[in-house]
Structures are given as structure tokens and as C-alpha cells.
Amino acid sequence: MALLELKDLNVAFEIPDGEVHAVTKLSFSIDAGDALAIVGESGSGKTQTMMAVMNLLAENGSASGKALFKGEDLMQMNAADLNKRRGKEIAMIFQDPMTSLNPYLRIEQQMIEVVMHHQGLTRAEARAHAIEMLRAVRIPDPERRIRQYPHEYSGGMRQRVMVAMGLLCEPDLLIADEPTTALDVTVQAQISQLMTELRAKSNTAIILITHDLGVVAGLCDRVLVMYAGEAVECGTVEQIFYQPKHPYTKGLLKSVPRLDQPDDSGLEAIPGNPPNLLLLPEGCRFRERCPSAHDACRDTPPMQLDGQGHAWRCFLGPTDE
């Protein structure tokens, strides 16, 4: 059984101008101990998908569909039952380490709260556990550091605290929403390395939400590519990086600036802009920017499967260029 399975998830937001369809009929699953990347540009719905699963949508948002976690539907669960799982079985690391920590509370207070609540440890035990965790994420001098406030930490250290907090209860599933985006490249490399190590140690499944294909390549086993609220391609990292089938995935891979390219090779950009989620086009949502678009693309393309776990939403066959 999959650890988490999403079936036909829809997320919409009510705004004065109408209804924004952030996520449309999204289905995917992740097994225990797996690492899945959800890749897409801003507005592709990658964050709102996980917010809906955690029941953290903004007030004007609504979600439908199923999110089965160990066979139980998170969408139908009441707050009390959900709270038993959030933080303990499912943890989430948010994008911005500056704003996700409470500036008024010491790191200690913020860390031991979760453990005391979920594992019923005493304050002293929880504290010892938190110090252990800080040491695991390589915060120097954790006994002293744990007494400090978030502003006394650098950006990279705050994100490491977030990772430590996420892993405190050894969750089965860790959702990391752009965990390295706000960080400098050298720190980014450290955090990625850390997550790989911790994953190997505790067998935690990871859903990594990101727009950075470089981070994905090093960290994940499978990739789900989203565009304008839809899944457009899903497969193993090798399938996605070496044999991409969807024109959007191909374009995305070509537009990433790489260090291992010859000096004067230009970047191949995808022309145009993503569609407005208020006025989604009929048929294929990537049609207007697609180099291979033809008349058939006015109809909604089917999800094609190759039988080896690779799926793509396009009329192009497995061998079409």
C-alpha cells in the first residue's frame, strides 16, 4: 500500500474576479521511504497541493478529492484526528525559514513543544532529544544555541533548525516546500546533503516541492512535473531527465543554465507566459507555448503510460520528437 495516495485532487480559490483553479484532478502516490519531487513554476499548484493535503489552505480555498494516508482519507478527517498526525507522522518544512519560526520564542521552546505533545516526554527528555537533533543537523554548540532566539541564527542555520524540527518525531512523511530556495548556493548544498543523509538513516519518505531541477537530480527517485495546476509528466529521475516526453519538461530542462555546457551555448527559453488560472484555455494548457502544438491539442490530451512507471499528458507518442 502506498504511504500517501492522492486521487483526483482539486483545489480552487474564490476571489472577487472569479474562481482560480490552482490544482485540477491531480493523482499520484508515494511509497514509504521514497523521495518524490514535485516540480513546476510559480502558480503551477505544487505548494497548494500539499497545503490541501495538510488542511492548511487559506480561508477562501476549497479542496475536493481523496488524500489517502496509510489508507485513511486526510480530507475527511476532523481537526483532532489530523492533529494526531501532523507533526508526528507527517511533517512539513516551509519555504521561508525567516518567517516560519516564531521570533518571540527561544528555539528550545519551539522544538520541544512538538515532542512533548506527540511523544509525551518530559521537558528535560524533550530538551535532550532536541539537542541531539540540532547536533545531527550540525548546529555548532547546540546546548548553548538552543537557548537562543531565531534572530541570532543565520539563514542557513534557521533552515537547519526547520529540518531538525521536521524530523524530531521521525515522521513517515516529510513534505519540504522549497527548503533550499531562500538559501545561498553553498548552504543549499549542505542542506541537500543533510536531507539525503537523514533520509537514509530514518527511512522517511520525502516530498520535495521545488522549481530547481538541479536539486531534484541529486535528492529524489521520482519526479512529478506540474504545469498550470495539472500533472503533465511523472516518472523516475532517469526517465524525466534523460527521456522526457512532454514538451514542457523538455523545455524546462533546456532552459536551466548549466555549468557543464560550452561557454557560448545560448539558453533555450520557453516562449510566452504560463496561462492565467482564471481563464484556463480549453484542451492542452501548454498549447500556446508548445513548439509541437497542432490542431488536436484543442482537446484535452490523455495521460499516456509506457508500462514502466512513466506517464505524460500529451498527444505525442513515446517515440515522437
Partner: peptide
């Protein structure tokens, strides 16, 4: 530190 968008190299 720049991540390489290639699973084998990464």
C-alpha cells in the same frame, strides 16, 4: 555547490 540537473552526475 551549483546543483547539476543530471541524476548520474549529481
Amino acid at each position: 555547490a551549483v546543483p547539476v540537473p543530471d541524476p548520474k552526475l549529481a
